[in-house]
């Protein structure tokens, strides 16, 4: 067992290294124009957002539609640190993530007692409240936003933090803690009577999700020079919701694929914002009507699936790996 797992880790590192190397090579040779670079970075940031939201919505089954609020907390906190307090970028990212996690924890504690659609509306409400709070803080520029943020986010930062996010959440899910979260999604009462502190794990999933949304927000702020409260509105949350729903609630690879695909589609439709949103709207409706489990369902796409298919074995469970 130990041996197979090590092989798997080596394989993962190899694939990630190849991906990193080839893109890094393009950048070094100057073959990647700024347009492609922006979208490459956005793909990474969106993957972080989608995967972290999937931990809350897909795996733990706690339907949140205010994820952009945590992104805002990360973005503003980190930007205050670099712009106003002249702190180094790594510290700013960490502080942004921790601040988002703290807010996530504080919001999650009372809210996660609610179920289903009520929870959804409450998270939406909190997302909007966070936005309004930033509008009312003159220190961070009020409604017109905080500008003059140094342009520090690079491809390297995005790549490694995205990889870290995905690996962290994947490892979490495939542990007893992650399974505790999944059991809540499956049947909260059964989970509780099986000895799982459901409140603790719901809040934990919410906090971890908020943490990575905060990190994504920090990267976002330090790429686009300026952040405004309205950047992180309800529609932004919906963007990430669409990614999670399309990819499959409960599939990390699904979220990665959906985030990548939808970022590219958005880039192509940049000048037709309404059409983009109409496509998003139709995606939500059509997926729910015809394939509510999303593209991947709760399955993961990995190299070992190919391996197993080769050996003619049946598909295993989500977390028996």
């Amino acid at each position: 067992m130990q041996k197979i797992l090590n092989k798997r880790i080596i394989l993962t590192i190899l694939v990630l290294g190849l991906l990193y190397g080839s893109i890094q090579n393009l950048i070094v040779q100057g073959k990647l124009n700024p347009y492609y670079e922006i979208n490459l970075l956005l793909i990474g940031i969106n993957i972080m957002m989608a995967v972290s939201l999937n931990l809350i919505n897909g795996f733990t089954g706690q339907f949140s539609i205010g994820h952009a609020g945590f992104m805002a907390v990360g973005a503003y906190t980190s930007a205050v640190l670099t712009v106003k307090l002249q702190q180094p970028f790594p510290l700013a990212i960490l502080a942004g993530s921790l601040a988002a996690a703290l807010i996530g924890f504080l919001i999650g504690l009372p809210t996660l007692r609610l179920k289903g659609d009520y929870l959804a509306i409450a998270t939406l409400g909190f997302g909007e409240i966070i936005k309004v709070v930033f509008v009312n803080i003159e220190y961070v520029g009020g409604a017109s936003g905080l500008s003059g943020i140094p342009h520090i986010t690079t491809w390297n930062w995005v790549f490694f933090l995205t990889a870290f996010t995905v690996v962290f959440i994947k490892n979490f899910i495939n542990s007893t803690h992650g399974r505790a979260c999944i059991s809540i999604r499956e049947d909260e009462i059964a989970a509780e009577t099986m000895g799982i502190n459901t409140t603790k794990y719901k809040v934990m999933a919410f906090t971890i999700g908020a943490f990575f949304a905060g990190a994504a927000g920090a990267l976002y702020a330090h790429y686009f020079y300026i952040i405004q409260p309205n950047t992180f509105n309800f529609l932004k949350s919906i963007d990430y919701l669409v990614m999670v729903v399309l990819g499959g609630m409960g599939s990390i690879t699904g979220s990665v694929l959906a985030a990548t695909a939808l970022t590219i589609i958005s880039a192509l439709l940049q000048r037709f914002a309404e059409i983009r949103m109409v496509i998003y709207a139709l995606l939500l409706i059509v997926i729910m009507l015809f394939r509510p489990q999303g593209l991947m369902g709760n399955k993961e796409f990995s190299l070992s699936i190919l391996e197993r298919l080769g050996r003619g074995e049946k598909h295993g469970s989500v977390s028996s790996k």
């Binding site: 339907f63 289903g116 659609d117 059409i275 949103m277 109409v278 998003y280 729910m288 009507l289 509510p292």
Partner: peptide
């Protein structure tokens, strides 16, 4: 949009409703 989902989960119906909402807003803009 909603009738086919009457026996689906409430979250599935909510997601559809969000979709319909966006469709009216941005379809309306067009």
């Amino acid at each position: 949009a909603y009738k086919p989902l009457r026996n689906a989960t409430r979250i599935a119906a909510l997601i559809t409703a969000i979709g319909v909402s966006l469709l009216l807003e941005y379809g309306g803009m067009l």
